[in-house]
Simulated assay, not measured.
Amino acid sequence: MASKGLPEFSLSGKVILVSGAARGLGLTQAEALLEAGATVYALDRLPEPSPEFHDIAKHAATELGTELQYRQVDVREVEQLNKIVEDIASKHGRLDGLIAAAGIQQETSALEYTAADANRMFEVNVTGVFMTSQAVAKQMIKYGNGGSIILIASMSGSVANKGLICPAYNASKAGVIQLARNLAMEWGQYNIRVNTISPGYIVTAMVEELFVKFPERKENWPKDNMLGRLSKPGEYRGAAVFLLSDASSFMTGSDLKIDGGHSAW
């Protein structure tokens, strides 16, 4: 992608993985990376991505001169995950970026949470993110170009959400924020940067369903932040491009909180 202005935001020639990108925030961010010139591989556990995925892939190939590919993998299957990541890096002779957006949510009170459910939450949201980052970092080190890794955390990793009962989820996101700092510390020597994005409430299909079940949340949640509204997935596009590009070349070990001021009261 030829860029006349702000070339540091270009991702032209870069190969980037996005886990949890079959739909939702992961797919929205993947689209932004394509528009910035990157070749993008979406990793997700779904056998088939959402219909929108195929439209974006077609647009990438015909209009943007780049490509969006899909690879099915559960981030808990570490051996398979490593093989897929290694194959992608080997094909291109490089690996430049990762957005680790794969995650699950479960609303259960702390008194009723089972160990099995808690372990599943941490296995996907913390260990899965860790192992995905590790697989990518190994290839970045192998090809010697450095790179940038974004872990999708949450404002829920820094605050307790009033009226939202998800102790294990919030603990897992706090874990992601702390994990990123430690990976940044260890991998800085290889010119690998690691940062987190902490979104506020995002209106996705899943949240819309939640509002049907809990209409009071639709009314109350927007009042909890300083802008008085909820966010859309598209409002995190720029942050993804910024953190994966040279525009953020001196930024690592940081958490980019995008929550409408929710946790700044």
Rank of each mutant, 00 (worst) to 15 (best):
T28W: 11
G24C: 07
A42I: 00
T62R: 02
A22P: 06
F53C: 00
A42K: 00
H54I: 00
A115S: 11
V18E: 00
E123T: 14
L27E: 04
H59A: 08
A89P: 04
E77D: 13
Q80E: 15
A22E: 07
V124M: 14
D55C: 07
A57E: 04
F122E: 10
A60H: 08
K58L: 13
A137N: 12
Q69M: 05
E48R: 01
A36M: 09
V40F: 06
V124F: 15
Q106K: 15
Q72N: 08
R23D: 15
P49I: 00
L46Y: 04
N145F: 03
A38C: 11
A61Y: 12
L34V: 06
V75G: 04
A116E: 15
L46C: 05
K91S: 12
I99F: 07
A116F: 12
P51F: 13
G128A: 03
F122S: 02
I56G: 02
L81N: 02
A22V: 11
D44F: 02
D117L: 15
I56N: 03
V85M: 08
M131P: 03
Q134G: 09
T132W: 08
S109D: 13
A61W: 12
A42Y: 00
A135P: 10
S50C: 10
I56K: 03
I56Q: 03
K83E: 03
E77H: 13
L34K: 07
A22L: 11
I88H: 15
V136F: 13
D44C: 05
D96T: 05
D117M: 15
R120Y: 13
A137K: 14
E112P: 00
A101Q: 06
E107I: 08
K142P: 01
T127G: 00
S109N: 14
